[in-house]
Design a protein around this nucleic acid. Structure first.
Lengths: 245, 245
DNA sequence: TCAAAAGTGTTTTGTGTACACCCATGC
DNA sequence: GCATGGGTGTACACAAAACACTTTTGA
């Protein structure tokens, strides 16, 4: 979002007597990808003077005839050319002064895409994949939004089979482990990692090997089709005395 | 919310050319309390014809000069007379047709209060504490909102010292266990429960006993003051290889 | 003395974590 | 034949779960 808005600010002023309807609502998407062994986010150069030189998340005002997910999908589709993307709502952010041009409440989503699939409209705009680690300052409260979304991703990553949305169809266990490390921000023990993943039973051995690697090639795996839903896969409930005891 | 709105709908129509500003934003609060060994929610009889006889959550439109938390606190204060309440945002709900009078996006919060502290404005309105289990149908999408909030509560309850907001200052371990059971919806083993709680080190033994009980009285405890923050207490991060390994 | 709940420990099972060696391949 | 990562198993520590008896109090 944050773009169309500047044009509208004048209009907002005019209707200030409609107290409850001069709050705008946007959706902001934290679009993650995995590239060059780094977790990256798709950002766009802010076109507001106040934030000159800073990047912001991709977002837009919500249209009256679309629901929240639809708006997010629209942004994703517009910006990445991709359909059928993993998307999840995280939180609303609504501080009064979060937007310099007026009151805007935004609802944050994060999504996971395989960078190879997007026909990126990178060229025409100031779009840019930025490594998450290397981001210092952002426009608006987008740094906070990004951190919140990253925390949510980190929290979900071992419980639900979602990171596969960041990988190509076929991948090796090393690739998968490196991805987990990139998301979590620390290193994992290889044997323990493999054990843990194999217990989850998310993968099929497709009886193929890596090639193009300058060392012993690893086996390739796919995510089992039953986990390929783009929506959130609920953790099984499995018995009663699980949460407490 | 959902109340002021009916009056405004006409106005919305008038400004339909301001495409992006005829979406209203509300906050809805799922206010939990613990009473008669049941987890209950504060509801109000819907005043919309469409939902005659049904209950809805407490909510209101967000004012242009207040942020999301402020709006929620206002609702809580108005309805329960209580300040300083545990409150946490859960999610936004924004289906197009969730509100019969127009487009309203709502942001759901849940809060935990000690029923004994509220000077309830119960009398004057159709306010009502309803046991969570016994709720079948609600106005709007409020059943979904309630379920989502309850799920969030269940998920957080063993990790963060929050349920104490539902109890009086002093309580016995049995009371605490019954509360956990009410929230989680299943029974817990007494010895394991006590062990688990004692490991968390959230409580102080205040060297007092229950009285008024028709059996052997239990010891009373308080929550340690350092956990009395009303905001969310973050779980300690403790070492690297925790999430995965 | 009975009813009701308080209080307490041990065993078993599963999970998390640390750690080291041989193997297959490309160069 | 060497460098690089692939692939595997074991031992220890800790947490979860199942489970029963004695104690204290009020009625």
């Amino acid at each position: 979002m944050e773009k169309t808005l500047r044009l509208k600010t004048a209009e907002i002023e005019k209707i200030s007597h409609l107290d409850y309807f001069n709050i705008a609502i946007s959706v902001d998407c934290v679009i993650f990808c995995y590239h060059e062994k780094k977790l990256k986010v798709l950002l766009i150069k802010s076109d507001l003077e106040e934030f000159e030189g800073l990047y912001s998340l991709l977002g837009d005002l919500i249209r009256p005839d679309e629901d929240l997910e639809t708006a997010s999908y629209r942004i994703l589709k517009d910006r990445t050319g991709m359909d059928d993307v993993y998307l999840e709502q995280v939180q609303a952010f609504g501080s009064i002064n979060r937007h310099p041009s007026g009151r805007v409440i935004t609802i944050a989503y994060y999504s996971l895409i395989d960078i190879k699939h997007h026909k990126l409209q990178l060229s025409h705009h100031d779009l840019h994949w930025q490594p998450v680690n290397e981001i210092k300052k952002m426009a608006f409260d987008h740094k906070l939004i990004l951190e919140t979304c990253l925390a949510r991703l980190q929290q979900q990553v071992m419980d639900y089979p979602i990171v596969f949305n960041l990988l190509p169809e076929k991948f090796s266990l090393r690739q998968l482990q490196e991805l987990y490390e990139a998301i979590l921000g620390f290193e994992l023990d290889r044997r323990n990692f493999r054990k843990k993943i194999s217990i989850k039973d998310w993968l099929v051995d497709i009886e193929e090997m890596e090639n193009d690697v300058p060392h012993r090639p690893g086996k390739l795996y796919k995510l089992k089709p039953e986990f390929k839903k783009k929506g959130l896969k609920k953790k099984s409930i499995s018995g009663k005395q699980q949460a407490v005891s």
